[in-house]
Computed example of a mutant assay.
Amino acid sequence: MNQFDNFEEYEEPVLYDQENDHFQEDVTFLQKWAAKVTGPIIDLACGTGRATIPLAQEGYSLIGVDIHNGMLTHAKRKTENTNLSIEWIEQDCTKLQLGVKSPFIYMVGNSFQHFLTNEAQDQLLQSVYKHLEKEGIFIFGTRFPSPDELLQPSTEEYWRSYKDETGKTVDVYTISNYDTMQQVQHYITIRRQKADSGKTMDEKKTNIKLRYVFPQEMDRLLKGIGFEIVGVYKDWNETPLTPNSHQMIYVCRKAAD
């Protein structure tokens, strides 16, 4: 298993934006940390620039990195007629060669879960560590491995609905199966576009695999790489982590060399 085979959810960048652009809580949190540093900020697994572009609009210099050409191409298209200070780079985040060190690197959108093996997680974090300045900050989020999250029924479950670009309602359903040996959740997402009559006009299924990490496991993983954990939160409002959390937000600092 690896992130290269995990792209079905990202094959339509416009759809991705439509479903995700409204989420900005993490951007507000990142802006607070961006204000504390000087120098280029690196957005890893930046996708279409959901978090990259708002930070650049605040005057910060950004490097957006992603391995998915289609998502990155769409990000470039969105900013081609602007004067924003963003450099878009297509690279594997486990093998970064950016030629620069940053005081602040982040990875949002639960992208950490795309690194499915212990080896991939180690390579990612080592790559981040190498590109951070002394005492630089790394912020990332990942879903909390609660029983409700992992032990979802393997039958089709309704998730949410939204209006697409044509004004049609799209109902979204998921089917999940958790592999306890690999700590990987296998998701099938089903999107059904509805006519005004309520009849299904179109249906699309995508697959994605997401790795879950438990808090004690994450603590040892980060400290083993050399990070100091500055804070762990259940949301982007800095609420302390609790057993009923849905997310884990980590703020880490590179130890002094």
Rank of each mutant, 00 (worst) to 15 (best):
Q31M: 13
Q31R: 13
K32H: 12
W33H: 15
A35C: 02
V37N: 03
T38M: 07
G39M: 08
L44M: 09
L44T: 07
A45H: 04
C46A: 15
G49I: 02
G49V: 05
A51H: 13
I53R: 03
I53H: 03
P54F: 11
L55I: 11
L55P: 10
A56M: 03
A56H: 01
A56C: 10
Q57Y: 02
Q57G: 12
E58S: 12
S61D: 12
S61I: 06
D66I: 09
D66E: 11
D66R: 07
I67Q: 12
I67L: 14
H68L: 13
N69Q: 15
G70H: 11
G70D: 12
M71C: 09
H74M: 07
K76V: 07
K76P: 02
K76I: 10
R77C: 02
R77W: 10
T79D: 00
E80G: 00
E80H: 13
E80Q: 13
E80P: 00
T82Y: 10
L84W: 13
S85N: 14
I86F: 07
I86Q: 05
E87T: 14
E87D: 13
W88Y: 15
I89D: 06
E90Y: 03
K95W: 01
L96T: 06
L96P: 07
L96C: 11
L96D: 09
L98Y: 05
G99Y: 11
G99K: 10
V100Y: 14
V100C: 09
K101H: 11
K101Y: 01
S102M: 08
S102T: 12
F104P: 01
F104A: 05
Y106L: 03
M107L: 12
G109N: 09
G109F: 06
S111L: 08
F112G: 00
H114K: 02
F115T: 06
F115A: 05
L116P: 07
T117S: 15
A120P: 02
A120T: 12
A120E: 15
A120L: 11
Q121E: 12
Q123N: 14
Q123I: 01
L124H: 04
L125C: 12
L125I: 08
Q126V: 00
Q126E: 13
V128E: 01
V128D: 04
H131M: 05
L132H: 04
E133F: 02
E133P: 01
K134V: 14
K134P: 08
E135Q: 15
E135W: 01
G136M: 07
I137Q: 00
I137M: 06
F138E: 02
I139S: 00
I139E: 00
I139W: 02
G141T: 07
